[in-house]
Amino acid sequence: MTILTTPRLSLRPLTPADLPAVLAYRNDPEVARYQGWALPATLESVAGLVSDAPLGTPGWVQRGVWAGAGLLGDVALNTDPQRQQAELGVTLAAWAQGQGYAAEALRALMAHAFADLGLHRLHASIDPRNVAVARVLTRLEFRHEGTSLQSYWHRQEWTDDARYALLRSEWTP
Rank of each mutant, 00 (worst) to 15 (best):
L122M: 05
W66M: 04
L71V: 04
A69F: 08
R135Q: 08
V22T: 02
S148G: 14
N78L: 07
Q99H: 14
S51Q: 05
L149G: 07
F114Y: 11
V50H: 09
G118R: 05
T159F: 06
V22K: 02
A108P: 08
Q84C: 13
D52C: 03
Q62A: 13
R129C: 07
T159G: 06
F114D: 09
S45I: 02
G56L: 06
A93T: 04
A113D: 07
D74K: 00
D74F: 03
G64Q: 02
V133E: 06
Q85A: 15
V90R: 01
T42S: 15
S45Y: 07
L77C: 07
A76F: 05
Q62E: 14
L72H: 03
A67P: 02
R143Y: 06
Y34V: 11
L77W: 05
L43T: 07
G98W: 03
A69I: 07
G118P: 11
R135L: 04
S51L: 06
V136A: 01
V90F: 03
A108S: 08
A93I: 02
V65R: 00
D116N: 04
F114H: 09
R155C: 13
T91A: 06
G146Y: 03
E145N: 15
Q35R: 05
N130C: 11
A105G: 12
G73Y: 02
G146R: 04
V133N: 01
V50P: 08
L137G: 01
Q99D: 07
L137D: 00
A69N: 13
A93D: 09
V61Y: 01
V133P: 00
D28S: 03
G48D: 02
G146Q: 03
H154L: 15
L106M: 09
L71C: 11
H120R: 10
D28I: 01
D116F: 00
A111Q: 13
L137F: 12
S51G: 10
W60C: 05
R135A: 09
E157S: 12
A103S: 15
Y152F: 14
R63V: 00
L72G: 00
E145H: 13
D74Y: 01
P20C: 08
H112E: 11
G73T: 00
Q84I: 04
R139M: 11
W95Y: 08
W60T: 11
R155V: 14
A24L: 14
Y101A: 11
A132F: 02
Q99G: 06
N78D: 08
A38N: 08
M110K: 06
A111M: 06
T138E: 14
D52V: 01
Q85E: 10
P40D: 12
L140G: 09
L39K: 10
L117F: 05
N78E: 06
E44D: 15
R107Q: 14
W60H: 05
T42M: 10
S151T: 13
P128W: 11
A115G: 12
T159S: 12
V131S: 15
L77M: 14
E157M: 12
